[in-house]
Each structure stands twice: as structure tokens, then as C-alpha cells.
Write a protein that binds this DNA or RNA. Structure first.
Lengths: 171, 171
DNA sequence: ACACTGACTTAGGCGGTCATTAGTCAGCTA
DNA sequence: TAGCTGACTAATGACCGCCTAAGTCAGTGT
């Protein structure tokens, strides 16, 4: 809510903080970015969340050219985020449609967090659309929580090495 | 938790669902992607969250070349996600350091959600690192919640037009 | 048999994102 | 004053992302 105080000392200063040699080679952020690192991939996923299933829906709604749409859909299917399945509307010929897998659906928090950030910092006139919980109608936000239920602020994060397996992560 | 059921019918089928003419022109996701649409920008932000402040820290830890590091830092400062400020260590000459602004810090949920997704779907041997709440030590996750406190699943989202201002959003 | 349509593919081109290599420049330290 | 180091900038080239424009191709309806 405070939009003015700049340069706040945000940093994760946990157990691994001065991790000089630990160069985040296996970092999940980096791996995730290898799978989706293009604008078009995000936009196609957005349209999938919005309910698009057919090729021309993705192309038109995301405002992408057909070649890019085709390429991206093929990649998303190959990566396991979407599946391609034949279907047929009555009186129409058989076509394929594209649907999100669980893997793809679980990227939703990323998109929501991105939308939320854009709403807050890039829209002068407030959010153009809003998300509501279909059960109760309340606004939905992406947030950081710990398992104890506390809401976590950016400064309250510690980074710890997770699996204490055999020494794989030495310098 | 269920990792096998593919092709689940995930879609936001709310009030705006068959939004043919509404082509998401002002979409916050798209605007956010205009600000950060490169791998290097994400990696530099990651390092900033991890505590990096100096040029060579960003360059070495994110494994980016110096020209890219310089360009990206300049862009992130221009976009308002980071600030550049002079500082001096005792016995050293004055240098600049880069720190996250509130705007930059608030992108953290996006990164955390991305990391979480990568942990779940792209790492065979579990997450290489974990995040803990510095207060209580419990694991931290990015999640979707409504204001009533319910945890929201991908299928339980409605999309509604937000600001009912004067007719700006007509076809 | 023919045109029609939705779902692509192919070809060509532009600009952006990187890496590599080779500088420059500012201010300490010797 | 000369050298060192950290923080850059400049030049080049490979590759990628995306566009437009122009095909192809397979079922459907006439």
C-alpha cells in the first residue's frame, strides 16, 4: 500500500546468503525459464486460462501470428503443459483442441502474480479486470504464506539448502 | 498433490468468458512482460533477492556477460525496479550499488511461484533450495487466496471486468 | 466434383538477446 | 606517478522471436 519509499533493504539473508561458490546452477527459476521464456508462451497460457482451446482462438486473442502460435503450441505440448486432443463439434469436421495439463494449470499463480504486479505498478487507472473466487465472490490475490499461515513479506525470507543428500553441491 | 490426471478442464469461465471482442489490449500480464521479458532480467532480480548489490556480483552469480549485465541493470533502474546509489567501503573508492525498490521487491511472488513450479515439475530430486519464514522457520509457498481466506484452485476463478468507468472498453 | 474453411507450413526479413573480445575510465594504493 | 581493480562501453557475430505474405492440406457442405 505504501508506494513511495524506495530502496528498501530487501534481501534474503538466510543461511546461504554469502553463497559465493554456490552459483545456482540447478536453480528452478532458471529451469522454469528454459520452458517458458517467451512473451508468446505467457500469452498463450493466459488465453488457455481464459478458456481458449482452439488454434484460431489462441492466435486471435493473444494477437500472435499463426506461425508463432503453431510453434508455441507445439512446444507447450512437448513440454507437457498442454495436451492436444481431437474433438468434433456436431456438423463440423474433426479438429484438434489444446487443453492445459495439471503441469500447465499449476503455472497459474505465476500469471496471477504477474497480473497483480502489473495492476499495481503499470496501470494508472487501476486493474482492467479482476479475479474472484467462484465460490464466495471475494477478490483473489497471489501471496506468500508460510505453513504456519503467516503472510510473508519480502524481507522475511530465509534461503536454506533443501535436500541434505550426499555431497553433490560442493564448490 | 495429484500429479497424474492430465487434461483437467481448467478455465476461467466467469462473467467475461466468451470475450470475443475484448482482446486484452490493456492486460497487466502483457504490460508486465514488456518490462521484464528476458531471461537475464529474471536472473538479475533473483540475485537481487539473494542479496547481490554490486555489478560484478550480478554478473558472476547470474552467469551473464558484462555487457548484458550493464544493459539490464540500466533498464531495470529506468523502469523503476532498482535504484543505483553511490556507496563506499572503508579503504575503497566510491562505487555504485544496485538495490531493489518496492516496485522491484513486489515481483518476488512471481519469482517464488516460478521457483515452486520448477521445483515441482522440473526437478527429479526435489528442490535444491527451500524458502523459510524468517520469523517461524516454516516453509514458504506462493498461493492463491481470496479475501475470505480460502485457498483458490485453478478451476475456481472468475474473471470480471473491474472498473465500471465510462465506456472506454467498447469493441 | 468443387469450393470453403480452419489449421496449419514455408519463405523471407527485421530487430532483439546473447556471448566473446577488446578496450576505457576513475580513483585508490604503492 | 604508475599500476591495479572494479565497473563499465564498443564492436562483432550467432541465434532467436516475431512479423507478413503466400502457400498446403484435409474434411464438409453443395
Amino acid at each position: 500500500m505504501n508506494a513511495m519509499s524506495n530502496a528498501s533493504p530487501i534481501a534474503m539473508t538466510g543461511a546461504l546468503a554469502p553463497r559465493e561458490s554456490w552459483v545456482a546452477r540447478q536453480c528452478s527459476v532458471e529451469r522454469a525459464l528454459q520452458v517458458i521464456h517467451t512473451r508468446s508462451a505467457f500469452l498463450i497460457l493466459r488465453e488457455a486460462y481464459y478458456g481458449a482451446t482452439r488454434f484460431d482462438e489462441f492466435s486471435r486473442r493473444a494477437r500472435l501470428s499463426e506461425p508463432v502460435t503453431a510453434t508455441r503450441l507445439r512446444e507447450l505440448v512437448a513440454a507437457g503443459l498442454m495436451v492436444r486432443e481431437p474433438y468434433q463439434e456436431p456438423g463440423q469436421r474433426t479438429r484438434d483442441r489444446y487443453r492445459l495439463t495439471d503441469m500447465g494449470a499449476e503455472l497459474l499463480p505465476v500469471l496471477v502474480a504477474l497480473m497483480q504486479w502489473g495492476d499495481r505498478w503499470l496501470q494508472e487507472d487501476g486493474a482492467p479486470v479482476a479475479l474472484r473466487h467462484s465460490g464466495c465472490g471475494e477478490p483473489v490475490t497471489a501471496q506468500l504464506r508460510c505453513d504456519a499461515g503467516h503472510q510473508v513479506e519480502p524481507g522475511e525470507l530465509d534461503l536454506v539448502r533443501a535436500a541434505p543428500a550426499a555431497g553433490v553441491l560442493s564448490p
